[in-house]
Computed example of a mutant assay.
Amino acid sequence: MTQLRSSPFSRILRPLRPVSPFARIVLGTSFFVIFVAFWGLITYLGFVSPTFLASPTTMLREGWLLFTEYGFAKDIGMTVWRVLAGFLLATLIAVPLGISMGAYKPIEAFFEPFVSFCRYLPASAFIPLLILWTGIGELQKILVIFIGAVFQITLMVAVIVGGARCDLVEAAYTLGARKHGIVRRVLIPGAAPEIAEALRLVLGWAWTYVIVAELIGASSGIGHMIIESQTLLNTGQIIFGIIVIGIIGLISDLAFKYANRRLFVWSTL
Rank of each mutant, 00 (worst) to 15 (best):
T134L: 10
G40P: 04
S252C: 07
L4S: 02
T29C: 14
F31C: 05
V48C: 06
L215R: 08
I216C: 04
W207C: 07
Y209P: 01
A149K: 05
I107P: 02
F240P: 00
S229G: 12
F151E: 03
I99Q: 08
G217M: 07
G162Q: 01
L199D: 00
P15A: 02
Y258T: 12
G137Y: 04
W266V: 09
G40A: 15
Y104D: 01
G241Y: 08
T2L: 08
I99T: 05
L199V: 08
Y209L: 08
I211K: 09
F47M: 15
D75M: 02
A213Q: 14
A218E: 10
V83K: 11
P18H: 05
M1K: 12
Q3E: 11
L250Y: 15
S55N: 14
A109Y: 11
E197Q: 13
I245Q: 11
P128F: 09
I245Y: 02
K141S: 01
L168E: 01
E112K: 06
S116P: 03
V265N: 01
M225F: 15
E138F: 04
L16K: 14
P113W: 06
I25D: 05
L232C: 01
I239N: 08
V183L: 06
A213D: 13
S7G: 10
I216E: 06
A73W: 11
Y70E: 14
I25T: 11
G102E: 01
G102V: 02
R82M: 08
R119E: 07
T268N: 05
R185N: 09
F256A: 12
G46Y: 12
L27W: 09
S219I: 03
V36D: 03
L66P: 02
R200C: 04
G102T: 04
V265G: 00
L27M: 10
V80F: 13
L4H: 14
P113L: 09
V83D: 14
A164V: 05
F240W: 12
S124P: 00
T79A: 07
A85T: 13
T268E: 14
G28M: 00
F47L: 14
A177N: 05
S220Y: 11
F31Q: 11
F87G: 06
M59P: 09
G98E: 03
T51D: 15
G148R: 05
S252Q: 13
S7W: 02
L121K: 01
F114C: 00
Y44L: 12
A218Y: 05
T43W: 08
L203V: 00
F72P: 02
V19M: 14
V115E: 09
I245P: 07
V244W: 10
S116G: 03
T51F: 15
L97A: 13
G249I: 15
I147R: 03
I188M: 10
C166L: 12
